[in-house]
Amino acid sequence: MISRLTNAGFFRLIAGAIFTFSCHVAVAHHSPVAFDTDVTDFTISGEIISVDVRNPHSAMTLRVTNEDGSTTDWDIEFSSINLLLRRGWDFDRLEVGEQASCTGNPSALGKNEMYMWSIVLADGTEFSR
């Protein structure tokens, strides 16, 4: 994955990342104690409302439809832009309005928050650590 991060790909990916910034979300950097790291398979699915890929951590808002038909916006924190680039994440693919399934650690405090380690898009494309 790292060897793919050469000049040509690098600038294209950065451009994609900057594009996603146009839809701003509140950026958080939580301490690891904010998440239950013993649970690694916590998964939620919904519509991407916003994406913000940056250092030290990235953030996404996912709108999840509840059983009663109402919706809840979840704050999702994930890794830094630098590390995600080296892991082969294509930020062009994280588009607002897309359906996605996110897996990671739930909030340790029962909040509508999670730390995401992997994401599966509607067409099955997966990005993970």
């Binding site: 060897s3 991060l5 050469t6 000049n7 950026v27 950097h29 250092n55 080296r86």
Partner: peptide
């Protein structure tokens, strides 16, 4: 080969 060192701007948020 080809690995790039990136900048790490941390305070944008």
């Amino acid at each position: 080969e080809g690995t790039l060192m990136l900048e790490y701007e941390c305070s944008e948020s």
